[in-house]
Design a protein around this nucleic acid. Structure first.
Lengths: 139, 139
DNA sequence: ATCCTTATCGAGACTGTATCTCTTTAAGTT
DNA sequence: AACTTAAAGAGATACAGTCTCGATAAGGAT
């Protein structure tokens, strides 16, 4: 939630930045900053908490990563820039891509009582992932 | 995000509970716990922060209030129990009801790559309220 | 290769929302 | 009025995320 401006300063390719991106890809996928921090601290305990958050935020601001927001969970990051919806497991928090027939002109089907100008529509899916479903069925 | 069970203990009608609900209605509407706390502290500085959060959460758990979640803002509370979508102003945070033609069987139009069981679909609208729009146009 | 500028780092303080603990208070029944 | 216990109030705690600031290093210039 910082500036929306495209890079005005030139970014440097630091060791830490590479570590963060590699971890994000390795965790496959949609990891949160906290998940990446935890993962990295096992192999690189010297990496700083602020660094992980900073790298991810900067890259999202620069349009090199997609920041995913959820109502009940931390922000996640996606190496895919293609806009698509996501589903999150209410049990383990795993996030997966979702394809569905989006109503193409949803904005035009919206009306409210106070004259809002609709700018953004976000659809959040919540459910149970296959492995959590199996665990639930086993009980 | 506590228990989902319907009241197992009998609730008491306390002075504080009434104050919180009155404030929620007076603020008309969709206030957050923080907004209600701030409002109440002006007239009843003795009210505790935990009390406001507790009353709202308990009533939401009991199904007497609706808890609204947003990706970028605090939880809001709605005295209306009828399920409906909401739009939030990206500028001032005002929340308003929204009516739109919801795809009735959206769940059946969803597919994902990892076998999630879809349980819940939330649509969040974001935009600019009429008063913030006027302010923006004035500049 | 060395120097220089400055973006980035690491450590830890700080925010803000929300929850929890523990003691005290008071709602509602007997 | 007495009693039981839900709920209140104060303050500690949790936790994601941000900010500050001195130290470090990326990468272009010499």
């Amino acid at each position: 939630m910082t500036s929306e401006q495209p890079k005005t300063v030139k970014r440097r390719n630091t060791v830490q930045k590479k570590l963060v991106i590699d971890a994000l890809k390795r965790l496959n996928c949609h990891a949160s900053a906290g998940m990446i921090l935890k993962e990295l601290q096992e192999t690189h305990p010297e990496i700083g908490r602020a660094t992980v958050f900073r790298v991810l935020s900067a890259m999202a601001d620069d349009g090199e990563l997609q920041r995913l927001k959820f109502t009940d969970d931390d922000d996640r990051f996606d190496v895919s820039l293609h806009p698509h919806s996501h589903i999150i497991c209410r049990c383990c928090g795993k996030v997966d891509d979702v394809c569905f027939d989006q109503n193409p002109d949803l904005k035009n089907h919206v009306s409210d009582s106070a004259g809002f100008k609709v700018e953004e529509i976000t659809i959040e899916f919540k459910g149970l992932c296959s492995s959590c479903r199996e665990k639930a069925d086993a009980n």
